[in-house]
Design a protein around this nucleic acid. Structure first.
Lengths: 344, 344
DNA sequence: GTTAGCACTCACAGTAGTTGAGTGCTAACA
DNA sequence: TGTTAGCACTCAACTACTGTGAGTGCTAAC
């Protein structure tokens, strides 16, 4: 099996054409539309080899060829041009993100929207994995006789608020003092650093404030524990319906059903969290329902730590080059985008 | 035009059967399945009248009849049984809502999920219109050199947090004093009561703290202004695809497209906000894209004020009785549900 | 090694023919 | 006068058949 230059060119042409049109590509189309200087008969011979080796598939005898997963794999690994997005698009992106993005959840939503808008595929964005982020500030606020609110601000400007229920009433002054103490002890720690020993130590340290301390510290620990699951934002789900691949309602429903399971999405995204750009093609996907889809993910950093993932899901016939360049650009600038919009 | 008892019974049977099966209902079906004691020929004569008067429609010559919008209208206004949901379902609802519903946005999401799960239609839920709710607590928290966080808690336990950017740094102690002052002046007021005069007065009152006051008070005013738009939560969008009415991809896409426009949904929901239960059938809808849908909405109260709406959208062939009873129950208990889960 | 030529395959679209659910009308009956 | 049996009629939906064309694989000649 020798993939000589001409075979590569033919395979490239087939993939490019199929991604563009969605129709099986015939030998005549290749020889006429792409200037290879050979007749359709020659192309046929080459295609026959490519099919034998599993790079392309013939849906039925009298049809052209379509790329197989293996074909796409070769394409993304070796053939695809890695262009970067152009100036105009960069500007468009910055303009879109500059509006009302003061907090991370708003930014996430905007990024998801942007990705789906620009690619016409479906975007999946996971918010920062909170246990890797550092605590910046904590504040207790009285709500009513039986409950107080715990505000936690992390260094990614993620603000979470949680209601704590307690039997003992607490006044503003006490809560301010407790807040100050919590800050003193926990500020700068990552979520995962706040483990049982730290909590115990904290209880002892704050003991002077009496029995009110226990429920509050417990609530802090529990809140941090439960808030560790990242959020997932989807956008452009309906874009799936634009592709003939999913014009069969049953197939579309299958995928939509999968996309509704946030825990499944999280597990998919986290799997590739450490990898930078990752491309999973068709059958390479572990989830049965998306084995006719391709998934491209890119991890992003905040403060130098890989904390989350952004991704695009679409048909295996996907504009890989365009999607990769966009994801690279946005994931690479996530930190900056957030900083520009919150601190600047 | 006299709608005698028998005609009513026949119309009722047609609607019931069509809602159940989705297939046009023939005269033979009526005379056999529903015990009216008359032959199919008699039913045919009656149906002929009902069609002439516009209550039912014949899709084509050799088909049975289906209800028209006018038919459904008569049904929901006069024929439909108003049953209340049974004990088992009440328990199920309470069990579902009792988990992790400590704040209003979580409750909204859960209610939306519940509605779609229980009905198999698509649910639309709008969060409380914030300008009708009262301020319960305000708190300023330092974030970094250039920004502070403003937390506003309303009496519906809605907690909003907003980043305020400023040139002047502010320490915790000052912010605590400012927070106390804000609370003193604004606590108990509804959002809409905080108008320009109140803001001006506040600035004068707080002037002793120097120039830091202006940006903060402005931010408070602006935040309240911009946070007035309610949130909309959707659930079970994909349930639409389960109905043959929307098996045509184009029709489905049209509706999905509309459902993605949050401002359109808000305007639809707000229109019926004052009405308790409201049913809009097919062509009665003002939005072109949902003229083949029915929309049932119910407004809910918090603290005795109508502040938001929950609703179900689906095909005109909808189980109106079931949906109405569910919406009535949930909207009627919204206040209680929220209180049970947050204060209890 | 390349290409022209040709027989072959098969999805797809279009055209009849058949079926059956359901109707409207008429005439007879209670 | 209302009800019903009977019957001709309609028409969507399904099936079977056919022609078309895009595309292939193979062979023989260049």
């Amino acid at each position: 099996m020798i993939l000589d230059d001409r075979k590569i060119k033919i395979l490239y042409a087939i993939i490019k054409d199929y991604i563009l049109t969605g129709e099986p590509v015939g030998s005549r189309t290749i020889s006429k539309k792409y200037e290879l200087g050979v007749s359709s008969a020659t192309v046929r011979n080459e295609m026959s080899d490519l099919e034998e080796w599993g790079f392309i598939i013939q849906p039925h005898t009298s049809a052209g060829r379509i790329p197989s997963d293996k074909g796409y794999r070769l394409y993304v690994d070796q053939l695809m041009e890695h262009k970067s997005i152009n100036q105009d698009n960069m500007k468009m992106i910055e303009r879109l993100l500059q509006q009302k993005v003061d907090q991370i959840d708003t930014l996430m939503k905007e990024v998801a929207k942007l990705l789906s808008l620009y690619t016409n595929y479906t975007s999946i964005v996971s918010s920062p994995v909170i246990h890797k982020t550092k605590i910046k500030h904590m504040q207790l606020i009285p709500l009513d006789a039986h409950s107080i609110i715990l505000i936690i601000v992390t260094d990614a400007n993620l603000v979470t608020n949680n209601v704590i229920k307690m039997d003992i009433p607490a006044d503003q002054t006490t809560l301010n003092k407790l807040s100050a103490m919590l800050n003193e002890s926990l500020k700068g720690l990552t979520m995962e650093q706040i483990n049982l020993p730290v909590i115990q130590e904290l209880k002892v340290k704050m003991g002077i404030y009496g029995e009110i301390v226990n429920p509050i510290v417990d609530a802090v620990a529990k809140t941090i524990q439960t808030k560790i699951t990242p959020e997932v934002y989807l956008s452009g789900t309906m874009n799936m319906l634009d592709f003939p691949e999913f014009s069969d309602i049953m197939k579309a429903k299958q995928i939509f059903h999968t996309l509704e399971k946030k825990d499944v999405l999280i597990s998919i995204l986290l799997k590739n969290a450490s990898k930078g750009i990752n491309i999973t093609i068709g059958e390479e996907n572990e989830i049965e329902e998306i084995k006719n889809c391709s998934l491209i993910t890119a991890s992003y950093e905040i403060g130098g730590r890989k904390v989350g993932t952004i991704g695009i899901i679409g048909p295996t016939r996907m504009e890989y080059d365009k999607v990769v360049s966009l994801l690279s650009y946005i994931s690479g600038n996530m930190d900056k985008l957030l900083k520009d919009n919150s601190d600047g």
